[in-house]
Design a protein around this nucleic acid. Structure first.
Lengths: 157, 157
DNA sequence: CCAAATGGTTTGCCTATCTAAGTAACATGA
DNA sequence: TCATGTTACTTAGATAGGCAAACCATTTGG
């Protein structure tokens, strides 16, 4: 077994872990991973346009339309016509949406965060450097990634 | 921005890169990521039971049934009744399936492999150690991960 | 003022996935 | 040996995510 294999296995484990977390989240929160991701993006500023969400998530506008439909039906966001440019729609976080974001379970990330915080300073730095290096090797440099693990936001205590 | 954020961003970039790769693959190879993953599992031994595939992929049997339907229709695998235990079905790789596996594009992994191989020995070891450590921190220890990045197999030259 | 360009939604269609309910074959204990 | 239970899979019926193409509405640049 080559070292490349070893590294790919580790990568695959990392992805499986977040995949499984996504499923858990969907069950626990009543929101699917994709819905939650969109909700989070909206939550950053409190509102966002469909185009921007689509671009952030790397999917088409049409997909965001249906996704937004679900979130609207769930009462987590609302659609509002932009004043400036009336072609634009602002997907706006509601009170319930904010509450959902705040209360969403994020067990996996908490576990990770807890463990990460227990590391020595230099270890943290080294892990970050390595992860960034791997990301670069995967040629993922051109991507706008927010500090989000698949779907869950970071909780600070 | 905390260090945890930094590490999560890097992780997210890694996952985005493989996600996008999966989409590319689907287009280029005419196979979806899930189909390709199943095909690869079958390809390891040349055949596999639906239950085993389901377990490896972490999905239900029913999902494998429909997935296998697609692969059968595409002529990449065939279903064969087991002699030993006639409840069992062996999903068997066809010639065309083997060819599809061999010729599947895996640009991303090639890029990664090439870059990885150019690293010094100690750097490779260090990256593997770090990735494994992160995987462990994500509590992904119990997972059967093959040396596969989402869907693509490693090509050796 | 009108022809693009832009921003979204609608329509129609895939794929992936699940649960629940079947069917067929094996296994076992009286 | 046969009724009962278990195992392996498939079928049926949902839901979700996703896309492309057609379609509106609005803005913008001549």
């Amino acid at each position: 077994m080559s070292r490349i294999d070893d590294s790919l296995i580790a990568l695959r484990r990392i992805m499986r872990a977040t995949e499984l977390y996504g499923k858990e989240l969907a069950q626990a929160a009543g929101l699917t991973a994709a819905q939650f991701r969109a909700l989070q993006i909206v939550g950053e500023k409190g509102w966002e346009t469909p185009t921007a969400i689509a671009s952030r998530m790397g999917v088409s506008q049409a997909t965001i339309t249906t996704l937004t439909d679900k979130l609207v039906k769930a009462g987590l966001v609302s659609r509002e016509r932009s004043e400036r440019d009336r072609r634009q729609t602002n997907v706006t976080l509601t009170e319930a949406g904010r509450a959902a974001l705040d209360s969403a379970p994020d067990a996996l990330q908490q576990v990770y965060a807890r463990r990460f915080e227990n590391l020595d300073d230099w270890e943290q730095a080294q892990i970050i450097a390595t992860l960034e290096r791997v990301a670069a090797m995967l040629d993922a440099g051109d991507i706008d990634a927010s500090p989000v693990l698949t779907t869950g936001d970071i909780k600070r205590h």
